[in-house]
Amino acid sequence: MLLNFEGIYPALLTPFTKEEAVNEPVLRQLIHRLIDANVHGIFALGTNGEFHVLTTEQKLKVAEIVVKEAAGRVPVMVGSGGNSTREVIELSQAMEQLGVDALSVITPYFIPPTQEEVEEHYTKVAASVSIPVLLYNIPSKTGFSFTPETVARLAKVPNIIGIKDSSGDFNNIKQYIDHTRDENFAVIAGTDSLILQTLQEGGTGAVAATANLLPETVVAIYEHWKAGDNDKAQAAQQELQPLRDTFGLTSIPASLKKAVELSGIPVGPPKAPIQEAKGEALKQIEAAVRYYQSK
């Protein structure tokens, strides 16, 4: 059982065929590539995994493959969030049956709930499973942001183990850390530019999309920080920037998928309506990949 979240978990891409089916052989290839790079866990079915456009059947298939291929070598955390509490409970229970180690549950979106409603939502979801649950805060996509006080109360729920913050606002991360210092609670960077800063402030790790292309580099941020070498950790953190600079050129996760494909793992296109990178965006992505290959 995953009791403490520590280290680097790649925000796993979901490879697709041209027909938008899950590309199972490529998914296996990507998982092995990441584990061989000594990542500390796998995080599947997040935003970069396009969870919001997958069917329940596809989500369960992805989770089943990740659990099987990880084979206990690293913990597996999967996204089981959704808009209704009942839906989230049913998917979370199905994921537990498949043998995942922990769940990431995004806040309900489209109609943002109140803090009180969200607290009750997570309390019910956590009570419905026996595995750990991670809160997932991404206000730019959901219209909702946890207050530090809500996080502090939820941190007292026995199997709610932490929060992944993808707000991009370091003050958010700092406040979550400050409000949960007395709990066994992990605060995790969900924005790749804030990995080292989060660790230095008292966070425990990151869920990093850039790790799909640069797993060794992202792992190096954590390992150098843990060894007390902040200069090397900072250098590794800076190495992510050319890739991150391509993310705003397309809709998520088209830039990252193209970069990973150019590096030799054919993850395929995003699901429509998101389109593959092309034109000037493609040229910049190609330049970034060439930069990393030259290193």
Rank of each mutant, 00 (worst) to 15 (best):
105 V>Y: 06
159 N>C: 11
178 D>E: 15
162 G>T: 06
101 D>R: 04
191 T>Y: 13
118 V>D: 01
182 D>K: 15
144 F>A: 05
181 R>P: 00
166 S>H: 09
149 E>I: 06
113 P>V: 10
142 T>M: 07
171 N>S: 11
133 V>W: 06
120 E>I: 14
177 I>S: 01
137 N>A: 08
111 I>F: 14
108 P>I: 07
152 A>Q: 13
131 I>E: 02
182 D>M: 08
135 L>F: 05
175 Q>P: 00
176 Y>E: 04
140 S>L: 10
116 E>Y: 09
146 F>W: 12
151 V>F: 03
98 L>A: 05
172 N>P: 00
164 K>V: 08
103 L>H: 01
148 P>Y: 10
177 I>P: 01
162 G>C: 08
102 A>S: 15
156 K>E: 14
165 D>Y: 03
143 G>E: 07
180 T>N: 08
145 S>L: 02
115 Q>F: 06
104 S>F: 11
126 A>Q: 04
162 G>S: 09
150 T>C: 10
102 A>K: 03
116 E>W: 01
178 D>H: 14
154 L>M: 12
176 Y>M: 09
148 P>S: 13
167 S>P: 03
142 T>H: 07
190 G>E: 09
144 F>D: 07
191 T>C: 11
161 I>F: 02
190 G>Y: 06
161 I>A: 10
174 K>F: 14
178 D>A: 15
129 V>N: 13
111 I>R: 13
159 N>W: 12
130 S>Y: 00
139 P>Y: 14
117 E>P: 00
135 L>T: 00
110 F>A: 12
147 T>V: 05
187 V>I: 13
147 T>K: 05
177 I>N: 01
100 V>H: 07
126 A>T: 07
143 G>F: 09
177 I>C: 05
105 V>F: 06
131 I>Y: 02
177 I>E: 01
109 Y>V: 03
135 L>E: 01
129 V>F: 11
144 F>S: 07
100 V>W: 05
192 D>A: 13
115 Q>I: 06
150 T>M: 02
119 E>L: 12
156 K>N: 11
155 A>Q: 09
130 S>L: 01
105 V>S: 06
119 E>Q: 15
193 S>A: 15
137 N>M: 07
116 E>F: 05
160 I>T: 05
135 L>M: 10
